[in-house]
Computed example of a mutant assay.
Amino acid sequence: MKDAEQDVTGQVGSNLRDIRKARKLSLEELATLCDVSKLTLGKIERGEANPTLQILWKIARGLQIPLSSLLSFQDDIALYRFADRHSLAGHNHDWFVEPLYKTNGTMEWYRACIEPHTRHREFHLEGSEETVFVLNGQLELMVGGKTYHLEKWDVIRFQGEEQHTYINSTDEKVYLMLSLAYTNA
């Protein structure tokens, strides 16, 4: 594991353990809430596992917390350079999200990349709103049974709690900026 990945993994594990203990939950109770195995949660808490983005979303939804609660963000001035990447990978390593900022606990910012000829499906906490800004190429986004064809510089906003699917049917990686706003945070 790379040093940056170890830092993020340890950070997530420590934050998860703190949240679980603050709520007075056992690992078994947390596993039931999140639909993630007790073994996996224990490894995450000890920093022995680098969880996929899908696992982190399951934990966040199960605890009804923003994903950023599992990650530490700087509160003052923060500068993120493209070279300083701390990615969270999707299950098949075809979707990558880089947490950037958390604003007053109600909004999160991410950079994302979807590999060529792949799709990624997700949904977020109730009351969340997602905004997607396409930085290059073309992307299809399915929301609420409707498909939206997006191109470079297009922006779309929708209810994040609704299941949505990012589809990259092209031969190039597509880069995105994402924000999640939480009305219930």
Rank of each mutant, 00 (worst) to 15 (best):
E5Q: 15
W57D: 10
I55A: 13
A60K: 04
L53Q: 11
L56T: 03
W57I: 14
K38M: 08
Q54P: 12
V36P: 03
L33R: 15
V36N: 06
K43Q: 13
D35N: 13
V12R: 08
I19P: 06
I59L: 05
K24A: 14
I59D: 01
E28S: 15
Q64R: 12
I59Q: 06
L27M: 13
G42I: 01
Q11L: 12
G10T: 04
D35Y: 10
I55K: 09
E48K: 12
D35G: 14
L41D: 02
V8P: 04
D35T: 10
G47Q: 09
N50C: 09
L27A: 09
K58N: 15
L41P: 04
V12C: 04
S26E: 05
L30E: 04
Q54A: 15
S26Y: 08
I59K: 04
Q11S: 15
V36M: 03
K38H: 06
N15T: 04
R20W: 08
E29I: 06
K38P: 01
R23W: 05
L33N: 09
L63W: 09
L53G: 09
A22V: 00
R46S: 10
I59T: 02
L25E: 05
I55D: 02
R23F: 05
E45H: 09
V36R: 00
R46K: 14
V8I: 15
L39F: 10
L53W: 12
I55C: 10
T32S: 13
N15S: 08
L56R: 07
L16P: 02
G42R: 04
N50G: 03
K58Q: 13
G62Y: 11
I19V: 07
A31N: 05
A22L: 02
V12D: 10
C34V: 09
W57Y: 15
I19C: 05
K58P: 01
E28M: 13
L16M: 11
T52C: 08
I55T: 15
K21G: 02
Q11M: 15
T32F: 11
D7V: 14
C34D: 02
V8F: 09
T52W: 01
L16E: 01
R20Y: 06
E48M: 10
T32M: 11
N15K: 14
T40H: 00
Q64G: 05
G42A: 08
A4L: 08
N50A: 10
L16H: 07
T32H: 14
N50P: 10
G47H: 06
G10L: 06
A31T: 10
I59V: 14
A60M: 06
I59C: 06
Q11G: 12
K43A: 02
R61M: 07
I44S: 07
G10Y: 05
V12K: 04
R20Q: 07
L16T: 02
A4G: 01
K43P: 00
N50R: 09
D18W: 07
L63P: 08
A60P: 01
Q11K: 13
Q6G: 00
N15E: 10
Q11E: 14
G47V: 07
T40N: 02
S14A: 14
A22C: 01
L56P: 00
R17V: 04
L27V: 12
E5L: 10
